[in-house]
Design a binder for these strands. Structure first.
Lengths: 131, 131
DNA sequence: AACCACTTGCAAGCAGCTTGCAATTAGAAA
DNA sequence: TTTCTAATTGCAAGCTGCTTGCAAGTGGTT
C-alpha cells in the first residue's frame, strides 16, 4: 500500500515529520527505539517522534516490542505475519526468527481467546560463539 | 531448599528486609512489580526493595518479566521449568500458562545458542469473554 | 563482646518518556 | 486558488520509575 493511501485510509494527516518517521521504520531491518528513530531524523523534535509513534500504534500501523531493557522498540506491523526476534546476549545484535509459531499449541492449553503475543529469545550469536 | 540455606549458599546476608521480600515473592501467585512488592512490605524503603531484587536476580534466584508495560515484574526462579504467563487485555488478570514449550522448534530454526527466552500472551480471559 | 564489611533509609539525581501551550500547517471548504 | 480551522509541531516544563551517594546501622565472623 502507498504511504499516502495508508495515511489517508487511517485518517492521519500527511505531515513531513510523520512521513519521515514512517520512512525510517519502513527501511529499518530491525525494531528501533524512539532514540534511534529520532537520531535518524533530520531535526524532528523528540516529542513529535513520540507522538507519531503513538498515533501509528493506535492505528495499528506500528508494533511495540520489549527486549528486556527499558527501551521499547518499534517496527511497522506487516500484514503478512507476526514477527519474532532473537537477541545476542554478548554483542546485542538482533535477528529475525522466521517461521516460528506457537499459537496453535497455546490455544489448546488455555481458555483465553488469544489476541496477541510476544516472544523474545536471548542467545549467543554464531559470531560470538566462535570467540 | 530452606531460605536460610539458600541465602547462605549464595553468600547473601540474611537481613530482615531481604527475608521479607523473599517471603512475599514465595507467596505470590504471579509476578509482582517493585511497587507491589513494597506495598506488601511492612515499611521497607523502596531502594532496599530495589536492591534486594537486583541481588536476587544477580544470584539467579529471581527472574524479571516484561508484560508490555513500563513496569517489569519479578518472580522466584523455580528449579522445575521456565514459566510463561498470559494476560487479559480487558481486566489485567494474569494466569500461568503451563506445559508450553517452543525451545526445540527454535533450536532447529537458528544458529544462535539459546540461553533464555521469554513469551507473553495477551488475550481475553474466560470471565471477560462472557460479558 | 568487638569489629567491620555489608546493608539500610533517606534524599537527591537521572533517563525516558509525557504533556501544556502558543505558533504553524495540512487539507477541507468556498 | 485562497481562506479557514482543527490538527500538529517544537519547546519547555513535568512526571514516573528507577538508580545512586552517603552516613548510620547491623549481621555474622573473630
Amino acid at each position: 500500500m502507498q504511504e499516502r493511501e495508508l495515511f489517508h485510509k487511517n485518517k492521519i494527516k500527511l505531515t513531513e515529520q510523520r512521513k519521515e518517521v514512517y520512512s525510517i521504520l519502513s527501511r529499518a531491518i530491525k525494531p528501533l527505539s524512539l532514540d534511534e528513530i529520532q537520531h535518524d531524523c533530520n531535526k524532528i523534535d523528540f516529542s513529535s517522534v513520540y507522538r507519531s509513534i503513538r498515533t501509528f500504534i493506535q492505528k495499528g500501523i506500528v508494533t511495540e516490542h520489549y527486549f528486556g531493557d527499558r527501551k521499547p522498540k518499534y517496527s511497522l506491523k506487516m500484514n503478512d505475519s507476526h514477527r519474532h526476534y532473537i537477541k545476542c546476549s554478548k554483542c546485542g545484535r538482533i535477528d529475525e526468527l522466521k517461521n516460528v509459531c506457537i499459537i496453535d499449541e497455546v490455544n489448546k492449553k488455555t481458555k483465553y481467546k488469544i489476541v496477541d503475543h510476544y516472544m523474545e529469545f536471548i542467545g549467543v550469536c554464531p559470531e560470538c560463539l566462535k570467540k
